[in-house]
Design a protein around this nucleic acid. Structure first.
Lengths: 206, 206
DNA sequence: CGAGCGTGTTGACAATGTCAACATACGCTC
DNA sequence: GAGCGTATGTTGACATTGTCAACACGCTCG
């Protein structure tokens, strides 16, 4: 029942499948992942993966869920290492969110593209995404208390912020944003604009 | 060479294919579109579509492009029928954008999900999307002149706005937004927040 | 040592995209 | 109106792929 070092051929096939699938996705997109190919690359037969995942969708869902976990961890490092008082923290989180997506385009696409994963509900995925969302909600609530952000429904505000960064990431990944444009500047402007819209106005409340 | 009324079996198969594919997408998602099924539904053989589209991807791209055209037309009606002076026009455009997406979820997903369409460049699609984008840029520029919106790079601002509405639509379509939430309110809040962030501040410029 | 289960393997099948060879019909020229 | 050529369809065939069933192997437990 090894699981440690000498995984592979015999050993921890399940983990190897996840890793290999992720690698293939990074290389050639989710479409390039075929049960046969993944088996071949790992030196097992085409049906071997079925001992660990009910079907291809299940495998991809697991890979996507792992992506959400990575993203969550990535964001948590920001959450920890920033001045809790300033809204700048929130901005940085948004920035890092987009950066993660741009660095793992195919994986990010898989995480959100239920189309490739049957249009079923996929509670596993929703839950993984939700964990990140709740984290965002918490940060927003903190800034509401400290007075940097309007005191409205924090969940709604979180959806707005999430929409902005997710939308930017998606548009970029799908090639809708001209490559010549300055993506870093665009990321900053996006996070800033949304935060400005969420900020408490000093004079004239709306 | 008919093209008018008595289209079908013989007649305007190309148009029939586009319509049928769109219908199938609306019913069962893009995944449910198969060359054989579409042929069957139209009473032609499986290979018939290949006389009009090089391959399945080409067909889907054409359907997606048609979707962009519909969306553009939809937005133009708003563009025309609103008070040009108020930023409210811009907000309404954003709202209608999201609404279109929510009303045509599978189609919208196809329009932006290049994954389903090979990860090739798809210039046809980019162009179609671009037409809408340029329209948005123009409206933003108009409001910059009238003083409602910060005078910055209008394209960048357009990307920010587009990101927000596209992100919201995507998250909703992919089921990431709890169905219990008030989507209409969320749409309003999203468009408002972003516009607030783009607006000229009366006192204290940032 | 033998039973049993976890893990892999091979064979087979159905669905699908796509091509090649073949059929047909409609428009245009004479 | 006859003949021909191109546009449009049809059928047969094949490769790829997901997936299942039947079978094989090997390690653990008694």
């Amino acid at each position: 029942m090894t699981n440690q070092a000498g995984a592979y051929h015999h050993g921890d096939l399940r983990a190897a499948l996840l890793a290999e699938a992720a690698a293939m996705i990074a290389e050639g997109g989710a479409a390039s992942v075929t049960m046969r190919a993944i088996g071949q690359r790992l030196g097992v037969s085409r049906a071997a993966p079925y001992r660990h995942f009910a079907n291809k969708t299940a495998l991809l869902v697991a890979v996507a869920a792992a992506g959400f976990d990575r993203l969550k961890a990535h964001l948590q490092t920001i959450d920890a290492g920033a001045p809790r008082s300033s809204v700048e923290q929130l901005r940085r989180m948004g920035e890092e969110y987009v950066r993660f997506a741009l660095e793992n385009p195919a994986h990010y696409r898989l995480m959100y593209g239920k189309e490739a994963l049957t249009r079923r509900d996929l509670p596993e995925l929703r839950e993984a995404a939700n964990a990140i969302f709740e984290q965002l909600v918490a940060v927003i609530q903190a800034h509401q208390r400290s007075g940097g952000i309007k005191r409205q429904d924090a969940r709604a505000q979180a959806y707005v912020a999430w929409s902005a960064v997710h939308g930017l990431a998606s548009l970029w990944i799908e090639g809708q944003i001209q490559a010549t444009d300055d993506i870093d500047g665009l990321i900053r402007q996006t996070t800033r604009t949304v935060l400005d819209g969420m900020r408490v106005r000093r004079r004239r409340g709306a």
